[in-house]
Amino acid sequence: MRTALKLLAALAALGLLAGATVVGFGLYNTSARQGHWPGVGAVMHTTFKQSVRLRAPGEEAVPDDLAAPDRIALGALHYQSACAFCHAVPGIPRSATALSLNPQPPHISEAVQAWEPRHMFWIVREGVKMTGMPGWPADGHDDEIWSVVAYLEAVKGMTPEDQRALTGARLGRSGCTACHGEGGRSTNSFVPRLDILTSDEIVAALSHYSAGRRPSGMMQEVVSRLDDEDIADLGREFGAAERPSASLPPGSDEPGMELATRGTASVPACIACHGPGRQSGAAPAPAIAGQSRDYIAIQLRLWRDGKRDGGPRAELMRKSARALTDGDIEALADWFSSLDQVSAN
């Protein structure tokens, strides 16, 4: 037994010495032009697959609206901007630079075939070490990730014509209208309307994204290509100098209206700052009336869960949203989204 233990100890010492020699003298060639030693690539790929399957969330985490066209469209536009450089899109080959990476990023049409939505969610959120695949830039913004996953799931049966219908050739700064619509009049339920915001509110939001004070994996990617002058130009292009007008509708017994107009002991009346019918002297905040139901609900959950920041009233919003139940959020989203908002443009 002692002899066997001594032999194992000696082998372990030799292994450590060999490893230290390879590292210390640079014997392992890290050039991207050279492949791994035999077997290393297979071991790493198997480790990756098993790691994803072990850690991915359960089926219950997949949103019921994963196949919603608005989700797929939003995910497609973000993918086109942030991911297509490496993985390409249906009908378009990978670039020569992408093909020179080691390991080589798979074409998206092939990459999605082996994975379920819950697996793709984990990969997009966490990224993959030693591959160049980054994790999602904004912690806690799972809804953004699910929109990308919705697109990736749709890719499994997507033709090049389907891809062009989703994104066309819309890239760069002009891509603002791809998500937010012409003149900022978005019809995508997961994207805010800009036409009912002021220029100053749009500039403030973009500045908060740029500084990292308002996390968003999608918007932080967009603003990374903008400077202060671009941000000011976009504020002027999509916003208005004055707050758009909107009047408070007649009373009703809707729970959303009751909560929005009267509040509770823990939740101040939303309309006091956001309108419509904003109280005189109250600190003005961005308009909510006329925004889509999905967008309002998502933002309220982010505030409640401590995942949203930005602006001088951030602490007030966090305290107010902390007391909201899921039912409260749904009721507020239903009521505000049902209101007509006069465009600022």
Rank of each mutant, 00 (worst) to 15 (best):
N188C: 13
A154D: 06
A73Y: 09
A204G: 10
D227W: 04
P160T: 01
H180W: 03
T30P: 11
R236D: 12
D142A: 02
A4N: 09
G135R: 13
G275Q: 01
A211L: 15
W146P: 05
S247V: 13
A178T: 08
P57W: 02
S207V: 12
Y151K: 03
G290H: 02
D328Y: 07
C179D: 13
A42S: 10
L206M: 07
L300K: 07
G175H: 10
S207H: 08
G135Y: 06
A169N: 14
E254W: 05
L27C: 01
G239D: 06
P90S: 10
R318L: 12
T97Y: 07
T177D: 13
L66N: 11
E59L: 12
A232F: 04
P105F: 07
G140I: 00
W122I: 10
V128Y: 01
S51Y: 07
R262S: 12
A150Y: 01
T159P: 02
E60S: 13
F85P: 08
G277E: 09
T261F: 06
P286C: 06
G183F: 02
D340G: 12
V149P: 03
G212S: 11
D200G: 05
H87V: 09
R262E: 14
S31K: 07
A169K: 11
P63Q: 03
L54I: 06
R170W: 14
E110A: 12
E59F: 09
T21C: 09
D294M: 13
E60Q: 12
F48Q: 10
P268A: 08
L11M: 14
R214A: 12
H180P: 00
D143R: 00
K156S: 09
H208C: 10
A12M: 11
L152G: 00
P312F: 15
N188I: 13
A61C: 03
W136G: 08
P90G: 07
S31D: 15
P192G: 10
R164N: 11
L300R: 08
R318I: 15
D200T: 13
P93E: 09
T131M: 06
M218I: 15
G183V: 04
G39P: 00
L234W: 05
H87F: 01
P255V: 02
T187Q: 14
G91L: 02
D228I: 12
L54W: 14
H87N: 08
Y295C: 09
E242Y: 01
E60H: 07
M218A: 13
A333C: 03
E153T: 11
V267K: 04
A344Q: 08
